[in-house]
Write a protein that binds this DNA or RNA. Structure first.
Lengths: 345, 345
DNA sequence: TTGTAGGCGTTATCAT
DNA sequence: ATGATAACGCCTACAA
């Protein structure tokens, strides 16, 4: 347990003081606050004035205790590194705020020194729902889900164990990848390598699946040696592309599972003296903000971050507020954005 | 006010139930929970077992009410767009969690439809401190500070009104910029343009100051027409660079106030047929993760995100826990990272 | 070593 | 239309 020293909030005006000042009971003040109908106009005015004068602000904690609601939602994510998570989070928070909820971050699942923190979710504030933006392997995700109380609504990006309280927002990884690879094939590319995300993840496998299907549609054998796995970073993309180029000759296109990986590819290709798109075409995935302004600008599969974030939060809040959202998962499509990295002019 | 429908948390086991089950008083349970010394070993065991059996978890809200502490800190930031804020936030959260605090996001200061939200900070959960990662103009920041209760500790990135409860983490913008521009000058560049951040911001002016001083040290007149202002985006960087190149001939270096802006510069320069670094050298600011893998890799001023985030949170927590951190502001240095975009080989 | 009483600031319920 | 009283779940202080 961590040290918790003295400190605390400054003294605040309470309802009782307002009541005394307005010469009414506490209840009446509460009623004014909640726009209760049964209140004499004069009384209401008096109370309003007292509130104003004393600068009274209701205590959210006390309210929560009585109410049994916190309007607090936890967002689980270990690394914002990939940019995309941060953007999704931002839009999710926007949606939450507009509906009167606050989002708190449940970040580091391990301490700065490395040891895993004991159930950070359980030790946390009381939350009414959990949004999982966590990018972990299937196993890690299972471990995470076990920490969450079985009655708390959960919305997660990507796949998850089938549990009654869980809903999923699923990007059409397969479809997006399929369209990307098909574009490459249509423009005459035939030896299409792939720098995939880490293995053992559903998004990785979905995108690999799309790659395979597109090749199959063109009657091309999917060769496993054209596949490399990388963390979602430019460094890893660079390393794996080098490895690929060392091992294999004649690659005329690369499908990278993320834009950051693709940036690493571009770098490696350049160092090997290969021109993009002339010698090798490159497609990324995500459509992060710089993709359009790289040289060459990057053809990529657009992940609609705003839609994902908002939809996820809407879904979560709907569950919290008792609505049955029905379907177990909600699909989001991923469209191709064609730019210079695939277009020989 | 936003709609708040039914919903709420699932029923939880309370301390009373544990007490009854262990045949002790509520207080004894509390003592076991707090590792109080005055407890008979047998009793402790019995209570532990009861807690285990019933799956009791203390209610954070009730605890907060009695305790008068929430261990909740608000992080204000309007847009994660610049990546850097997201990274700083991530490290700040890590530090907070390690010390037993939770960070909630106070994002959108305006609703999705555009109207400004009425004091999102006041309407929020009760927080014990505020971390301001907000990138607004001086005026906007003042408006923000007015929303914060005068007794709540605040730590902010960059400059801020001098208020007793406010502490600042200040990056050495001037020094970083100075070193960047000096490098350009040392390598023989003489017509050094600048794509600055939005005007009316202290970081922008600090960096502009560094530019001016470096030029002065080399006896070169700082020409205002070599300066453009841009939002911190690649698009804006691109536009302003084009504008610059249209208006002015003979530019042999550009100092961009952020890496994203620099990416826009690189694009524009490329379209104008200018080679980097041969014809024009480029320096960025931030050292975001892709800077090293762009082609050419980007010379830039490193902003130590981890240090900034952690230091800010440490400072905030120190203030919350009563320690007087002393100094009004804490400086963080920004070192130059030299890469290809300035190095003619 | 353990228990009792009272309070934290609100909301819910019942009474007037 | 307003007020009194009892929760809400925990903690602190004091009593035994």
């Amino acid at each position: 347990m961590s040290k918790r020293m003295s400190g605390g909030a400054p003294l605040r005006v309470t309802m009782d003081e307002v009541a005394r000042s307005a010469k009414v009971s506490r209840q009446t003040v509460s009623r004014v606050l909640h726009d209760n109908a049964y209140i004499a106009p004069g009384t209401r005015e008096r109370v309003r004035k007292a509130i104003e004068k004393l600068g009274y602000v209701p205590d959210a904690v006390a309210r929560s205790l009585a109410h049994k609601r916190t309007y607090l939602v936890a967002a689980v994510l270990t690394e914002f590194a990939g940019y995309s998570r941060a953007r999704i989070l931002m839009h999710a928070e926007e949606e939450a705020r507009a509906r009167g909820y606050n989002v708190f971050i449940c970040g580091s699942l391990s301490s700065p020194k490395g040891e895993p923190l004991e159930s950070p979710l359980l030790n946390s504030q009381k939350y009414e729902g959990v949004l999982i933006l966590y990018r972990g392997s299937v196993d890690d995700r299972f471990a995470l889900f076990k920490q969450i109380h079985r009655d708390v609504p959960v919305v997660t990006l990507g796949y998850a164990p089938k549990m009654p309280q869980v809903r999923r927002i699923v990007l059409d990884d397969r479809g997006g990848a399929y369209r990307a690879v098909k574009l490459l094939l249509s423009s005459g590319r035939r030896t299409i390598a792939q720098i995939a995300g880490p293995p053992g993840r559903f998004d990785t496998s979905g995108r690999m699946q799309g790659w395979r299907e597109a090749l199959a549609d063109f009657g091309i054998q999917a060769e496993e040696r054209l596949v490399r796995h990388a963390q979602w970073t430019p460094e890893a993309g660079y390393d794996q592309t080098c490895s690929l180029l060392n091992d294999y000759d004649g690659i005329d296109a690369i499908f990278a599972h993320s834009d950051l990986i693709a940036i690493g590819c571009l770098r490696a290709l350049n160092e090997y003296g290969l021109k993009v798109p002339h010698d090798v075409a490159v497609v990324g995935f995500d459509n992060i903000s710089i993709a359009a302004l790289l040289t060459p600008s990057l053809t990529t599969v657009d992940q609609p971050f705003a839609e994902i974030g908002r939809t996820a939060m809407q879904c979560l809040i709907a569950r919290i507020e008792g609505g049955d959202v029905g379907k177990m998962s909600r699909a989001i499509s991923a469209e191709l954005v064609i730019r210079e990295s695939t277009t020989v002019s």
